[in-house]
Amino acid sequence: MEWRDQGLLLSARKQGESGLLLTIFTPGQGLAKGWFRPTKKEVALCQIGALGEFTWRARLSQHLGKFQFEYHGNPCLIYMDDPLRLGALSSLLGLLSIVLPEGHPYLRIWEGVQDFFDHLESPDWIGRLIQVELLVLRELGFGLSLEKCASTGQQEDLIYVSPRTARAVSREAGAPYAEKLLPLPAFLVKNIEKEAPKADELLQGLGLTGYFLKHLILHQGGNELPPARQRFEKLYQECLRKRP
């Protein structure tokens, strides 16, 4: 059995003295694992975030196959000096390696991740990261319903999300329960004119996706948010605190 696909390296764990156990995410195969014996030159390239062409071979599909890898690039290496972007990339890659099931293609998530990589230099790159996390939730069957108020059905003035139902709640309907509801940043609400999100809205967005990732997906395996995701949110908070 053999397949060839483009892929994103999510983790490379040492296996034996010279081998690596790779976990990759591909558009056609989803999450895939396999063994790879890198040459001296390839060792440096086998870092999380590496993009390339992967060939996987095994006798049976259930076997831990062997990879061949042709390197194309790695966005993480470009942002080695940028703690926030490097943190965001580590966070996303760590999250994908934990939440995605093996052998199930998620083409929309793949496209979302590529779009995020393409817009790392754009001003709203954190907003795009939040959109990818929402996409992960949606594709795994835990999408947030943010189009209309869960209580009144109105489509305006949506400022809360119910932590129980993951549905938007309007200001009026949510007022009595404001302390229990999660804040919904305006840039995530559909049917409104898109504006560049403000820093505190981005922080709210990270809090929102973090909450649902933890309670709807990672909770089932008894997991917390990946440490890299926790660190990224903390780092962003710290950046905002220091900003004059």
Binding site: Q47, L77, I78
Partner: peptide, 12 residues
């Protein structure tokens, strides 16, 4: 040189 090192060197 590997592409990763060259990328980093070019970037910096």
């Amino acid at each position: 040189l590997d592409e990763g090192t060259l990328q980093t060197a070019l970037h910096r």
